[in-house]
Simulated assay, not measured.
Amino acid sequence: MGKQSNAARKAKYERIADDLRDAIRAGEYADDGRLPSESDLMARYGVARMTVRQALSVLQNEGLTESRKGSGVFVSPTPVTGSARLARLEKHGRIYSPGETSTDHVAMIRSCTDGDVIEQLEIEPHDEIVIRRRVFRQDGKPTVVALSCIHMRALAVVPELLEQGQLTPFWQKTYTERTGIEITRSPERRSARLASSDELAALEIDIPATAAVPVLVLHTTFRTADGPIEVWEDVHAPGLWQVDRGTE
C-alpha cells in the first residue's frame, strides 16, 4: 500500500510539472513571466501544497523557472533554442520569451564557404545564398546571434528576404502561403566552436583579439520537397544556460 501511495503521489507532481512545462514552452507566461501562485495551482489541480512545491522544484532544477522572494515563481530569463522558438511561433504566434527582444536585423547575399552549410543546403562551394542575421537579447543583454542561411530558390518566391529589418510574418510562412509547399525541420544539432570576432562584437564581449572564446552552436535544417531550403544557426553567448523550451 505504501509503495502504491508514493508512486501515485510522484506521478501527480510529475504530471503537474509536465503541464506547466508545456505552458512555458507554449509561451503562456510571456506577458510578465510569472507562474500562478502556489494557492492557485493547488486549487487548479486539487492537490496539497507539498505536491505543488515538488512540481515547481522539478522545473527549477531543469533551469526553466526561478523563485523570487516575495514575488513568486518566474520563467527563467535564459536563451531559448531556435527550434523551440519556431515551435512556439507556429503554435501561438509568439517568437519571444518574457523579457526578450531582437535587434540588428541585417539581410545580404553572400558566397557560401562554410562547409557545414554547404553540406546541409546541398550546394556547391561559393554558391550564393541569402543570409539574414539578428541578435536576440534578454532584458537588453545580447544572448544569441542567429544566422539564417537560405537557399537562393526561396528568393524568387519571397523577395522580401533581402529587406533590412525584421520580417513579419516569418518568411517561411509567406513561402508556404505563396507556394502551398510545406517546410519541415530536422532535429536540432548542437556543437561547440570558437567564436568569430564578428560574433563576439555582436554579443558585446570585449576581450583581447588573441583570446579564444568557446561558444555553443545550434543548427536546424529546414527542407521542402525540392530539398533543403534553410540552415538556422544560433550562437549562444558564453556563460549562459541554454534551455530547450518547446521543440515539440
Score class of each variant (00 low, 15 high):
Gly2Cys: 10
Gln4Asp: 07
Ser5Trp: 11
Ala8Ser: 08
Lys12Gly: 05
Ala17Arg: 09
Asp19Pro: 00
Arg21Pro: 01
Tyr29Gly: 03
Ala30Pro: 00
Asp32Val: 10
Asp32Thr: 05
Arg34Leu: 09
Pro36Met: 07
Asp40Cys: 08
Arg44Ala: 13
Met50Leu: 08
Val52Glu: 04
Val52Arg: 03
Arg53Thr: 03
Gln54Asp: 09
Gly63Asp: 02
Glu66Gly: 07
Ser67Asp: 02
Lys69Ser: 12
Lys69Thr: 13
Lys69Leu: 09
Ser71Phe: 13
Gly72Lys: 05
Val73Asn: 06
Phe74Ser: 03
Phe74Cys: 02
Ser76Lys: 15
Thr78Cys: 12
Gly82Tyr: 06
Ala87Ser: 15
Gly93Phe: 07
Arg94Lys: 15
Ile95Met: 11
Tyr96Gly: 01
Pro98Gln: 13
Gly99Lys: 10
Ser102Ile: 00
Asp104Leu: 12
His105Gly: 05
Ile109Lys: 13
Ile109Cys: 09
Asp114Ser: 03
Ile118Gly: 01
Glu119Trp: 09
Glu122Asp: 13
His126Cys: 11
Asp127Leu: 04
Ile129Asn: 08
Val135Asn: 04
Gln138Leu: 12
Asp139Glu: 10
Lys141Tyr: 11
Pro142Asp: 09
Val145Arg: 06
Ala146Asn: 09
Ala154Gly: 02
Pro159Trp: 04
Glu160Asn: 10
Leu162Asn: 04
Gln164Thr: 00
Gln166Cys: 08
Gln166Phe: 05
Thr168Ala: 07
Pro169Tyr: 02
Lys173Asn: 13
Thr174Gln: 14
Tyr175Ile: 02
Glu177Met: 14
Arg178Leu: 14
Gly180Phe: 07
Glu182Lys: 10
Ile183Ala: 11
Thr184Val: 12
Ser186Asn: 09
Ser186Phe: 07
Ser186Gly: 03
Glu188Ile: 09
Arg189Leu: 14
Arg190Thr: 14
Ala192Gly: 11
Asp198Pro: 00
Ala201Asn: 11
Leu203Tyr: 02
Leu203Ala: 02
Glu204Asp: 14
Ile205Lys: 01
Ala209Tyr: 02
Thr210Pro: 00
Ala211Leu: 06
Ala212Leu: 11
Pro214Val: 00
Leu216Tyr: 04
Val217Glu: 01
Phe222His: 07
Phe222Ala: 06
Arg223Gly: 03
Thr224Gly: 00
Ala225Trp: 05
Trp232Cys: 11
His236Asn: 08
Pro238Arg: 00
Trp241His: 12
Trp241Phe: 11
Gln242Phe: 04
Asp244His: 04
Gly246Tyr: 03
Thr247Ile: 09
Glu248Phe: 11
